[in-house]
Design a protein around this nucleic acid. Structure first.
Length: 604
RNA sequence: GGUCCAGUAGCUCAGUUGGAUAGAGCAACAGCCUUCUAAGCUGUAGGUGCCAGGUUCGAGCCCUGGCUGGAUCACCA
């Protein structure tokens, strides 16, 4: 909290100074919201800029005159402000070096700069992400979801929240029965061991097989004169899958056994993928554990009159008064739907953890579902429904269009990760910079780079927007990429290794009257704005803000590195400053990348 | 058809929530390694901000109406 206060402090101070100035000059109270403080653009002199247009009605003077007056007052009455200039309606204030030197001295060596520690009474936030179905392997769509959820959890933690990362495994339902049924019919007892196939892949193949055979049946029925809609509903395979679901809910031992076996295969596969991605959960919920609670809650709702039953026995929520339709909560055969279990799961979580907020990271295709979920929970009398927030993100598309898992046009998660690793290895070989490292160290570095490339590529895009995944671009390690940022970090580490070799003393502080070069100041200010960026990213639940920030920071550092000598600098005071700035930037890069779940390598 | 979301350089994306001359990367072209890591740095070129109105000192951002694309409106999840 300290450094947040510190970096925001100056802006708060300036704001107060402006209010005071307006009060003094125009005898009127300025609306705090009307005071806009922004960073002064590089091409002008100054550190912070006040937009004076909002005050013109009070001053009844031109923008320039108003800015001039306020500037003079602030200069006189605020000790941090050293100078000002006016360009059109913009008042540019310059902060004295003393302030910046002090800021530098206090923070450059702080590895937790910008990170707020969790307090005792921290807000408790649960973040649900990943949420796979156990009928197919993870793919690129899941990757965006997982990376977003993981990064959001990290960012919220860095904002001082108590965060619970949870996964919800959709391990039951008609779709799971489909792959079970197909395996039963055509699997010939195949197992991951017998085939050498990863468990999730094996099960996924039978899900596809079901769909193929199902489509054949439909085609056959239609050819025999059946109406297409009817054929889809009555194809023998689907009927059989429905029966299997009924038996599953009734606890049929054989069905449950097959179910447990096949899900076990899938979990082994998922675990490998999560491990490769470096993802952990605090708790994993299984739909099979919570759907019964959902059913109970629905039946209770029926008793209290919140819900109603139709003639065929199905149970519905009437949402017409909310401008929506009716929503089914239990089928006529008594089995539950997706919404049923979500009701149960939500209830379970709020009573398990007494959370203040629950964020669901789920694709925007389910916007309607979450709108309905909140309304249904409200209808059932749960006030905490308001604490549910759907973090809705855009779909990942390929240049060729949408991914369809049943049509085999998906980008598999494992394949993608392997491909990134292959690329990293190739580039690294070409560069030949890792020759002094052991085989284990090289493996570790390549892992960090390849994963960093993938994570950064996905996370730099605004979550709300859909994104196009271009394979050639994703394996590009130049420009606005994870490896670019990691490279900047590795350069900094290299400097400190060299410094040690040469016995160059690492500085601990600066003299108060130090004068900064333009480039040094720009780099310092980039670091300065990290805490505010963390805050913004937390407020907007947007890792993209962090990714874009850290890219800018790395770019700034590379320019600094290129323009100014560091270890070679003979003037000790300058060398010290540049080493301090390097250390500061290295810490910030590491923290920022950490918020994205990306590790940084010591060399590359 | 109803509802929701998006449209910014050839391509992929930013744009500090209404502020100064709209920025990066990729691709193209031209430069920079006997000096701390060239996965880097510098420069050139590339824009009627989907279109038309409106709000105001000021609009890529807000409002209205179109156009285009996507999502959704299941006894799927």
């Amino acid at each position: 909290m300290q450094e947040i206060l510190y970096t925001m402090n100056i802006e708060i101070q300036l704001k107060e100074a402006i209010i005071e100035a307006v009060q003094h000059l125009y005898k009127q109270a300025a609306n705090e919201k009307a005071i806009q403080i922004q960073d002064t653009r590089k091409e002008f002199a100054g550190d912070f800029t006040i937009v004076v247009f909002p005050f013109l009605k009070m001053s009844k003077k031109s923008a320039e005159a108003t800015a001039q007056e306020i500037g003079e007052y602030v200069l006189e009455n605020t000790k941090e402000v050293e100078a000002f200039n006016v360009i059109k309606g913009f008042l540019n204030l310059s902060i004295g070096n003393e302030y910046w030197v002090d800021f530098m001295n206090q923070n450059f060596g702080n590895e937790d700069f910008g990170i707020v520690a969790e307090s005792g009474d921290a807000e408790k936030v649960m973040v649900e992400f990943s949420s796979p179905n156990t009928n197919k392997p993870l793919h690129l769509g899941h990757i965006r979801n997982i990376l977003l959820g993981d990064a959001v959890a990290r960012i919220l933690k860095a904002n001082g929240k108590k965060v619970y990362s949870v996964n919800l495994v959709n391990d039951r339902g008609i779709h799971i029965c489909k792959s079970m049924l197909a395996w039963q019919k055509w699997g010939n007892g195949a197992t991951p061991e017998s085939t050498g196939q990863k468990g999730d892949k094996l099960v996924g193949d039978y899900y596809i097989k079901f769909d193929q055979e199902y489509k054949k049946e439909i085609a056959g029925l239609v050819a025999a004169g059946t109406d297409e809609k009817l054929a889809k509903d009555q194809a023998p395979l689907l009927v059989e899958a429905r029966e299997m679901l009924l038996e599953w809910e009734a606890g049929n031992e054989e069905v449950r056994k097959l179910w447990a076996t096949m899900n076990g295969w899938v979990y082994e596969g998922f675990d490998k993928t999560y491990e490769k991605m470096g993802i952990d959960f605090d708790k994993i919920y299984y739909e099979s554990d919570t759907y019964t609670l959902g059913k109970e809650l629905v039946l209770e709702g029926l008793n209290t009159g919140a819900l109603h039953k139709k003639e065929d026995g199905s149970i519905w929520a009437d949402l017409t008064s909310n401008g929506l339709d009716e929503k089914i909560l239990l089928r006529s055969d008594g089995t539950s739907v997706y919404m049923t279990q979500d009701v149960g799961t939500a209830h379970q979580r709020f009573s398990d953890f007494h959370i203040d907020k629950h964020i669901y990271v789920v694709g925007n295709e389910q916007n309607y579902h979450f709108q309905v979920l909140k309304l249904v929970l409200k209808k059932l009398g749960f006030d905490w429904a308001d604490a549910i927030y759907h973090l809705s993100y855009g779909m990942v598309e390929l240049p060729s269009g949408k991914m369809k898992s049943r049509e085999g046009t998906v980008v598999d998660a494992d394949d993608l990760i392997d491909e990134m690793l292959r690329t990293a290895r190739e580039i690294s070989k070409e560069q030949g910079k890792l020759e002094n490292f052991s085989k284990e160290e090289v493996t570790e570095i390549l892992r960090k780079i390849s994963l960093g490339a993938l994570k950064f590529f996905i996370l730099k895009v605004d979550p709300k927007k859909s994104m196009t995944f271009i394979p050639e671009d994703s394996i590009d390690f130049n420009g606005n990429t994870g490896p670019f940022v990691q490279y900047s970090y590795a350069r900094i580490q290299s400097i400190f290794r060299k410094a040690k070799e040469k016995d160059i003393e690492i500085p601990t502080g600066l003299m108060a009257d130090f004068n900064f070069d333009e480039k040094e100041m720009q780099l310092l200010k980039m670091n300065f704005s990290f805490p505010a960026t963390v805050h913004e990213a937390g407020k907007n639940l947007s890792p993209a803000l962090i990714a874009n920030y850290v890219y800018e920071l790395a770019r700034e550092y590379n320019q600094f590195y290129h323009e100014l000598p560091i270890l070679i600098e003979e003037d000790k005071a300058k060398r010290d400053l540049r080493l301090m700035l390097s250390e500061f930037t290295g810490n910030t890069i590491k923290s920022a990348m950490g918020l994205l779940g990306i590790e940084v390598p010591p060399a590359m």
